[in-house]
Amino acid sequence: MRYVQLRAFHHVAIAGGFSRAAEELRLTQPAISDQVGKLEAEYDVQLFDRRRKQVALTPMGEKLLAVTHRLFDAEGQALDLLSESRALRAGQLRLVADSIHHVLHVLSTYRERYPGVQMTVWSGNTETGLAQLSSYDADIAVLGDVAPSRDFEMIALNATPIIAFVAAGHPVATRPSLTFAELAELPLVMRELGSRTRRLVEQRAGEHGVALRYAIEVEGREAVRDIVATGAGVGFVSEAEFVAGEGLTRIPLSGPPILMEEALICLSERRESKTIKAFLGIARALTN
Rank of each mutant, 00 (worst) to 15 (best):
L183V: 07
A66N: 01
R221S: 02
F236Q: 09
A215D: 02
T126M: 15
T179R: 04
Q132D: 08
D49A: 04
P171W: 00
A244K: 11
Q46V: 02
G16N: 03
L79C: 14
T109Q: 15
A244F: 12
Q29C: 04
G91Q: 04
T109C: 13
V12Y: 10
V67I: 14
A87T: 10
L259E: 11
E24V: 15
L178P: 08
D44F: 13
A159M: 04
T128Q: 14
E62S: 03
A168T: 08
R221H: 12
K277L: 08
V218I: 13
V142H: 10
G281V: 06
V36T: 09
R113N: 14
L267F: 03
L88S: 08
L253E: 08
S33R: 15
R86T: 12
L95P: 05
D34Y: 10
Q46N: 03
R271M: 13
E246F: 10
L27W: 12
P252Q: 05
A156E: 03
P171M: 06
T197M: 00
A181W: 02
L64I: 12
D49L: 07
L79V: 14
G17Q: 11
V4T: 14
L79W: 12
L95F: 10
V218G: 05
A41T: 14
G91K: 08
M1F: 02
D139N: 11
R70A: 00
A285Q: 05
V4A: 13
E182K: 02
L65R: 06
E246Q: 15
T68G: 12
R204E: 15
M119S: 01
G231R: 14
Q132C: 01
Q29V: 14
H102W: 01
R198C: 05
V142W: 07
Q132S: 03
Q29L: 10
D226H: 09
R175Q: 15
L286A: 14
R111L: 12
P115Y: 01
Q203V: 03
F242D: 04
S268Y: 09
M60I: 14
S19H: 08
G61M: 10
K277C: 07
I216Q: 00
V55M: 07
T28P: 01
N288H: 11
L183F: 03
V228A: 00
D34F: 12
P256C: 13
G37H: 14
F48S: 06
Y136M: 11
A283Y: 11
G169S: 06
Y3N: 01
V218P: 06
E84M: 14
A90V: 10
A21Q: 08
A31G: 10
L286Y: 11
S135E: 11
S108W: 06
S85G: 07
L186V: 08
M190A: 00
E192F: 04
V201A: 10
E75I: 11
L93T: 13
E207P: 09
G209I: 00
T179W: 09
L39E: 03
F165R: 01
T160K: 04
F9H: 09
N288W: 07
P176Y: 10
V117F: 09
